[in-house]
């Protein structure tokens, strides 16, 4: 590769990064996420922009239910098979182990834990969310396939809870993610959580579990709110 080409590439890269910087001044990029060139084993040079190469660049689309009867049947199946993402975001997650163990045994009700967001339908936000976790929560949530549901536990998700004046935790979850069901308590007992799953099942069966579409519809608004508080937004807008 001639020097000219390299110079050209470098100037292109510079332009791209400047364009990014102009888009959002607050954005700062970690060293490993910066534009870089990698030498492949065969000697060719591969240009990598980690933030845009590794992810989908599409906006989320609304998935409208199509056939009413089929959808009703599927909703029944969805309500009876809720797979919960095993992401303990806050202290409420201490009440998850009792649920999957003999005393409360939520498997009876078709609720199971799942380790990866790709296979999960329900996200339990177990209490307070620090901004640092919120960033990961957004990514996990966006990776979950639609239809997906969010269960918010405790006071912290409703209005900040006892951390209302903390510089680190958000106050209102519904500003950043669409929430299906709130369960009161600090933290809610496992029984209340099971009641929350019951309510979620009812909502899904009635066809009201369409918050994923709401997220897609109001995508710009949610994104604006998220970006307002996540100061180092070093991830792409679309995480699908």
């Amino acid at each position: 590769m001639s020097d000219l080409n390299i110079n050209q590439k470098v100037s292109e890269m510079l332009q791209r990064s400047e364009a990014n910087a102009q888009q959002d001044e607050k954005t700062f990029v970690r060293p490993e996420d910066e534009l870089r060139e990698v030498v492949a084993p065969d000697g060719s040079i591969i240009k990598i922009n980690p933030l845009y190469d590794y992810y989908s660049g599409e906006r989320p689309q609304e998935d409208k239910p199509k056939n009413a009867i089929v959808e009703k049947f599927l909703n029944w199946a969805r309500s009876e098979s809720i797979w919960v993402l095993g992401f303990g975001t806050g202290c409420g997650s201490i009440e998850i182990p009792p649920l999957v163990t003999p005393r409360y045994d939520m498997f009876r009700f078709g609720v199971q834990m799942r380790a990866t967001p790709r296979q999960s339908n329900a996200f339990i936000i177990s209490g307070y969310l620090s901004v640092k976790t919120l960033k990961r929560v957004i990514r996990s949530y966006e990776q979950m396939p639609s239809p997906k549901y969010v269960i918010a536990l405790g006071s912290c998700t409703i209005n900040g809870g006892m951390y209302y004046d903390s510089y680190s935790t958000i106050n209102r979850l519904d500003k950043y993610l669409p929430v299906d069901v709130y369960i009161a308590g600090c933290m809610p007992r496992p029984e209340a959580l099971l009641a929350g799953f019951g309510e979620l099942k009812r909502l899904i069966k009635e066809g009201k579990g369409e918050k994923a579409n709401e997220y897609a519809r109001n995508f710009d608004e949610y994104k604006a709110n998220q970006k307002k508080i996540i100061k180092d937004w070093n991830m792409p807008d679309y995480n699908w």
Binding site: G160, Y167, N171
Partner: peptide
């Protein structure tokens, strides 16, 4: 002199 409540109210909009 960092006022956490003021910061939280400014940033995280209470209900």
């Amino acid at each position: 002199d960092f006022d956490t409540k003021e910061y939280a109210e400014r940033t995280y909009f209470p209900r």
